[in-house]
Structure formats: C-alpha cells, structure tokens
Nucleic acid binder design. Structure first.
Lengths: 218, 218
DNA sequence: TAGATTGTTAATCGATTAACAATC
DNA sequence: TAGATTGTTAATCGATTAACAATC
C-alpha cells in the first residue's frame, strides 16, 4: 500500500502545494462536504486542474471517481500520512527572542508534525523561563541536550551574527535538518537538509510584482 | 541607463536570488574586497556559476571583467536600485501580536526598502501602544488610515480566521500588494499582488528532504 | 603569453498546461 | 444516455547547466 510511491521522488513543487490542499480539504470537511473535484480545488486555489489531479494522483491511495471526484476524508488521510502529520517529530528552537517565541506561539506546529521540545538562548534573562510551555535552556547545553534527546530537526531564530554558530552546535548535537530564519547562508556539511526562510527574497518578489501591477495601470 | 532592462521581465527565480547576492556582496565589501568573481559567489552560495553570471548580467550596469570579475560596490548599487532598496515604500502591518511584533523587530525591513508606518490590531490592550517605534492603531480605522497615508503594501500577521477580513480591509484602503503570513488562501481581486509566506509548505519540503537523507544512510 | 574569467549559444532538465479518450 | 470528471500522453514553457569562443 503506497510504500513504493513514497520512495519515488515527488517534486518539491508538488510537496509545497500539499499543505495548501490539506488546509483546503479540512475546510471543506468542516463544511460537511464528502467529495471534491479537482476542478473545484483548482478554481478556489487558483491552480490548474490538471496540476491538481497530478499532484493528488501522486499521494492518493484511491483514484478519483469520474463525475464525483475525490473522497475528502480519504484525501486528508493520505496527505497526513504522506507529510507525516500523523507522526510527530521532535525539534529544538535556537533563539527564544521575538521571532523564536512568535514561532512557538504561531503555528500549532504539532498539527504539521513538528513538536518543539526545547528552546535555547544565550540571554540569562530568558534561560529557565518557559515560552508557551517550552522550556528555554542555556545555549551552552545545546549540543549535549540535542544529542541526549535524539532530536533531528533544529530551527534557527537567532540574530544573523549568531546563526552559523547555532547551526554548528546543532550539527554537533546530531541534528540532520535545519530550518533557518536568519538572513544568512549557512555553511554546512553535505548531508544536512536546510530550508532557508528568506524574508528578503519573498519581499523582493512581492515588490517586483507590485511594481509591475502599478506600471500596467494608467 | 538601464531603463529598458528593468521593464524586461526578470524571472521570479532570479529576483529571489538577488537578496542573497546582496547580502553576500555586503559581507565581502565589509571584508574590504573590491572585486568578486561569479565562480567565487557560486561556490560560496552553492549555486551554478553560469546562473550567477546570468543573474548578474540582468541587473548589472557594467559587465564583469575577464580575470577580475565584478566590481563589488557597483554590483551592490545595481541590486539596491533594482530591488528598490534605495527607495523605501510605506507599508502597514495588520496584527500586532507575537508574529507581528516579531516581524517589526526582526528585519530591519528598512534596509530592504520597506518602512512600516503603522500597525493595526483589534485587541484594546494593544491599541495605542507602540512596538519598536510603530504605533498600534484600532483595526476599525484600517481602511481609512491606509487610504489617507496612501500606503500600497500590507502585511497580514493575524490569526487565520481574521486574515480574509484583514485582506478585504487593506484592499478597500487601496493597498495593492499583500504579504500574507496567515495560513490561508486569500480570495482577492485580480490586480492585487500577493505573496504567501507558507510555513507549512516550507516545513513539508524540509521534512521530506530530511526523510530522504535519513533513508539514504544505513 | 597563459590562464582565469567572462558572456552567449545550445542542450538538458523539470514543471506546467493542453488535448483527449475513458468512465461513472 | 449525456455530461462532468477522471487519468494519461504529448506539447509547451521556463529555468538550469554544459560547451566554448572572446578577452583582459
């Protein structure tokens, strides 16, 4: 059951769209819908219907039915399983300042398969405190604690000057994936997954689009 | 000078890389480097050298010189101008809670051409306060104030339930670009630029990469 | 000069979209 | 049945990479 499908590498683009499908389906589910068509999803999410069908085909355990579409509950379950939303992994947060605590508060990341088990900071005023139920520990204990807890994912939310050091400490502790919110390119070993959350890049794309829109009109 | 080049549509992918080049060049500048080669940039940033050259060709006012490379100062100036870092635009923030105040504190967005002139919230405890020098106003005044200040960019950092309402109010006030941090797909008129900061999408991509890495090793 | 580095043209790769037969 | 909707094959589009001649 789907074992092989999950090994086939599914494109980054598709994976990036799955959470949006998931949210959308959850909404529909809450509204009491039992089935949904790819055309409806495409229209509401401003995507191409063929693209939606192809994406869903890659992760769904049951094919859609002509005339009816896809089973909402089943599709949600499929995405849950594919993205590991049913199977929470532990993570640590480095940097318990503004951004860090916003992140902890924000997401309800647990719904997205991520459980933040500890935070770290160098600021003595923060160490020992809790933010949203997460204990803030001394950054000097980072590597050893990460190793002891066997954590594989680290989130970096420190000022840019401290980001490389944080990354190094995470790697030393055995972390294999880093979600980096600091505006720096981290130098890391080959076999570590990194995802940079580059706000400046997003902003650049947005403002160029804005400029285009403004130029098109009168 | 470069007028036409800027109208030629430059790919989103390229625009997204420019801030990284900019940061890198600023670092090199601080280290006293006068020139830089595309090969060096590519190596440090883990990109392809041809890609770097093509990206730079699109925005640079002077071509690189064989054997020497590009002039660091000039390149920085070119990116500044291209991305509008030299020409700050006003923006408003909707939602002055955890994420909102982290965003204001975070970026030093002014360096990225963005000046947050006001924040809005519905929470009476926040209204009237200032976060990092930005005044928090009553959300009911959003549309009128945005219109009065002639602001074109809105940042949404409210809980997902409130996001569509915030977007509507921004549009009503005349905003033309929305940077959305709420995990919802916003329904908006055609001619409004939107950039969704979808944390769940980033996380999905990161965890899939992690899964791949872990599976590759014994 | 020799070699590092450039810019450009062509090839490749990957992702999106169009066309269409199959089916509930 | 007719029509909405599916999945798949082929065409298109866009972005990345390779190959290479030009040049300081």
């Amino acid at each position: 059951m789907g074992t092989n499908k999950e090994l086939t590498s599914i494109s980054k683009a598709t994976i990036g769209r799955l959470p949006a499908y998931h949210r959308y389906l959850k909404e529909k589910q809450a509204e009491g819908e039992r089935t949904i068509s790819s055309t409806a999803i495409a229209e509401d999410l401003h995507l191409n219907a063929v693209q939606v069908r192809k994406d869903l085909a890659l992760i769904s355990s049951t094919a859609g039915k002509p005339k009816r579409g896809f089973d909402v509950d089943e599709l949600i379950g499929d995405i849950d399983r594919f993205l590991g939303y049913d199977n929470v992994s532990d993570a640590v947060l480095v940097g318990a300042g503004g951004l860090g605590s916003a992140l902890v508060g924000y997401g309800g990341f647990k719904n997205y398969g991520l459980n933040i088990v500890a935070a770290f900071d160098t600021n003595p005023a923060l160490i020992g405190r809790s933010i949203k139920g997460v204990r803030v520990c001394d950054a000097r204990e980072l590597s050893s604690l990460v190793r002891r807890l066997n954590v594989r994912i680290g989130i970096i939310a420190v000022p840019k000057e401290a980001a490389q050091g944080a990354a190094d400490a995470l790697v030393e502790g055995g972390v294999r994936a880093i979600w980096n919110f600091a505006p720096v390119h981290l130098a890391l070993p080959e076999n570590i997954a990194v995802k940079n959350e580059d706000m400046a890049a997003s902003l650049a794309i947005l403002s160029k689009r804005l400029a285009e829109i403004l130029s098109h009109e009168k």
